[in-house]
């Protein structure tokens, strides 16, 4: 009887070894399989810049949409500035004399602090004029923090409303 138990124990001992080794081999088959049939998923990044295309909705950086005549759609309602959770947007307006002689508020500088932006997208979604958009640009690294503060309205641009009145 005791002998039988011993035999059984020896049997379990070797069975344990066998099942252990089998499980190890199963794991090695996975890694070995990838070694034999390489399926590289990584990309060579700076080299593939040309083919690299971000998704349409990708939130790279905020831009003020300009058309071909260098017109933007901002009418200085300041909603984006108020709704921005972390104060990344500064809309600076100026007063100009309109064609009808009344003074109007138009956009002077649209300042965007990329260094403070959390890309929540609230500014784009609250803008009734659809003046704002996120661009695909994602290479933001610079050596000077002040370079992250950007003016979004292009030099010499005017709003479409302004253009229509003239």
């Amino acid at each position: 009887m005791a002998l039988l138990t011993t035999f059984r124990e020896v049997g379990t001992y070797f069975r344990e070894i066998y099942s252990g080794v089998a499980s190890l081999v199963r794991g090695m088959r996975v890694t070995g399989g990838y070694f034999v049939r390489p399926q590289t998923v990584t990309q060579r990044y700076p080299e593939n810049r040309k083919e690299l295309k971000m998704f349409d909705n990708f939130k790279g950086e905020l831009i003020l949409v300009h058309d071909e005549q260098n017109h933007h759609k901002c009418n200085v309602c300041n909603t984006c500035m108020r709704k921005c959770p972390n104060g990344s947007i500064e809309v600076i307006s100026k007063k100009i004399e309109g064609a009808d002689g009344r003074s109007k508020k138009v956009l002077d500088k649209y300042i965007y602090h990329l260094d403070m932006c959390t890309f929540c997208g609230i500014c784009v979604s609250v803008c009734d004029e659809h003046a704002l958009k996120f661009d695909q640009e994602f290479e933001h690294a610079v050596f000077d923090r002040s370079k992250l503060v950007k003016q979004l309205n292009l030099p010499g641009s005017i709003s479409q409303k302004e253009a229509n009145n003239e």
Partner: peptide
């Protein structure tokens, strides 16, 4: 990465989507 691609296509960001 495949899930993050799905997220990026819809929400525009990969990790913190808001």
């Amino acid at each position: 990465e495949r899930i993050l691609d799905i997220f990026e296509e819809t929400t525009g960001t990969r990790l913190i989507q808001t």
